[in-house]
Design a protein around this nucleic acid. Structure first.
Lengths: 338, 338
DNA sequence: CTGAAAGCGCTTACAG
DNA sequence: CTGAAAGCGCTTACAG
């Protein structure tokens, strides 16, 4: 079944040495153009397939990158982490590398078991996708191949990471609202809940500051209780003309709440949100939302890990990638509003 | 940086031969328990990691399985094919195999380029995820490693495949409706559009037949035009007490349509659908829907490809995996209906 | 421009 | 129970 044509076989057939075959096939110098052509042709005819593993043995690289994602991120419904992985493997291919996905089970994470692909030298580097426990980060330090984080960073900054630029994305979308004429702008989200909500709040705040708009605390609405469950939104009597919501679900809830209250979106109130999930599009009107730039982030992750492999494991620090605003129908200029 | 402890190093330290080390570490016989223990311990101390590649070289297996998915299936929003992939890599690990995902670009599919991972002998087998062109199937035949299809099958049955049992799933859910007392049951879907809709229709029909319920053609409602776009559903004057919808989106549309017409769901009309997507849960009421058993299908795919690797590339034929009904609030017994 | 030799880190017979 | 030898399929110096 398996064809096992090797360079040796080609060499024998052509009565030359396998060294020459090797050189010709990998376009190294030291073979006449003539011979090279013959070798390549014969190789095709014989159905030769390059054996990456032999090469790997020689230079001790597997040409694989492990992508580790904690179990709870990919349980249940299709996760956008798998979308990250898709782009990772896509860009990896451009460097002749391949991705090996390994789901880190709850048990392995708790027991601090390093991934099997590491112990088996299956991979030359590791991309950690999403958050993992502090303890696990700690043991990751003992690993002797490059490790980077994607969509997460460790507080001690020992590992390079690629993260969403929540701050800047929020700043930009708030700028956009202000450019549209809005001056009374609210923010929906528990600013103590997660660091990403916090950054989104801060970006919103910076935009206000830059435009000399005073932050009105009545306009900052909490969206969840201590357990993280969403709560009924309490809309202030005097309502702003626009809201920045920390995610689509909240945007969706807000819009429905506003409609119940008799407000029109976007005529009376404009709404923007984050994440560009299905909630942005099942909502009436469809919500202008900031999409995480999964592709750009994955591309950066690949670039960084490859450079660590090729040019030594130097520090790169954190790379922030801002989102893409997807403009839809939930925003209007404040002039036309009435 | 790279630690490069080899068996040889362990052997030297212990002043024994690397053969013995090899045997001890892989629990082969021919080493005294005593020595084995010492070897294992020393191996740990020295931070030895097994080099899979060397093993691979010896027996010519890469211990990787390629998973190929056509570009258009994973473009845009998170795809459930990536969910398949997650389970594939999960189950593969149980066999000490790993998955390498390769997205087959439109261009490569059209030009009939075999995956790079095949040419580079990176993988011992291929799982094709989702539909690919007839021409591509044809050139896949020239491949000398096992190839199987997941969620797709070729008409000529040259490859083993794991598919959704649309027929049986539909049959079961219709039985469920009948058990609930329904006798007037409609079907929503263009039965000429795709083979999966057809199978779902046929399963529904079989259930009717078995219960001596005559198929009423007025109850079979088309849901899309020739281009595949969804159309306005034309509800018959005399309405059945239940509907089987070929997917959630259609179920969602149907329910909204029924509500517009003044019917109550499920009080007046019960509705079931397929795929268990978000549309089933954003709908009021939430729709009872048949979820594709991604995990079971992936598990089967892995089992089959591994067995082809180990026990020779024998034919397995088609394996159908039925879905899991997720019961929600869109169905009620016909007795209570009024 | 061409090739003989050594080596990457294991495992598999085969001897002792 | 232990180990010397050969080999998996390449590539990398080094000679000629």
């Amino acid at each position: 079944m398996k064809n096992n044509v090797t360079m040796e076989d080609i060499a024998k057939k052509l009565k030359i040495s396998k060294v020459t075959v090797s050189k010709a096939l990998s376009d190294k110098e030291g073979v006449s153009e003539e011979l090279k052509k013959i070798i390549k042709q014969t190789s095709e005819e014989m159905g030769y397939r390059y054996n990456t593993m032999a090469k790997s043995m020689k230079n001790g690289c597997s040409y694989n990158i492990g992508v580790i994602v904690a179990e709870h991120f990919v349980n249940g419904t299709p996760s956008f982490y798998l979308d990250f992985y898709k782009y990772i493997s896509l860009y990896l291919e451009g460097y002749d590398y391949y991705g090996i996905l390994q789901v880190l089970s709850q048990v392995d994470e708790e027991n601090l078991n390093l991934p099997k692909i590491y112990y088996e030298k299956k991979v030359d580097g590791l991309i950690i996708l999403g958050q993992i426990s502090k303890e696990y980060i700690e043991i990751l330090k003992s690993i002797d191949i490059p490790v980077i984080f994607l969509d997460f960073y460790d507080e001690n900054d020992e590992f390079d990471s690629i993260i969403v630029d929540n701050f800047f994305s929020s700043y930009e979308i708030t700028n956009y609202l202000i450019k549209k004429g809005h001056k009374e702008i609210g923010f929906v989200g528990d600013i103590y809940a997660t660091s990403s909500i916090q950054d989104r709040f801060l970006g919103y705040y910076k935009s206000l500051l830059e435009h000399y708009i005073v932050l009105n605390n009545d306009y900052v609405i909490n969206d969840r209780d201590e357990t993280g469950r969403y709560i009924e939104l309490s809309i202030p009597k005097k309502i702003p003309t626009a809201f920045v919501c920390n995610n689509d679900v909240v945007g969706y809830n807000l819009i429905n709440k506003l409609k119940d209250l008799g407000y029109k979106v976007p005529e009376d109130v404009s709404v923007v949100a984050f994440d560009n999930t299905i909630y942005a599009t099942i909502c009436e009107p469809n919500i202008t939302s900031i999409a995480i730039d999964t592709e750009e982030m994955a591309k950066n992750a690949v670039k960084i890990i490859i450079s660590k492999l090729k040019r030594g494991n130097k520090k790169n620090g954190r790379v922030s990638v801002k989102g893409n605003a997807i403009y839809r129908d939930s925003v209007t200029g404040v002039k036309q509003s009435k």
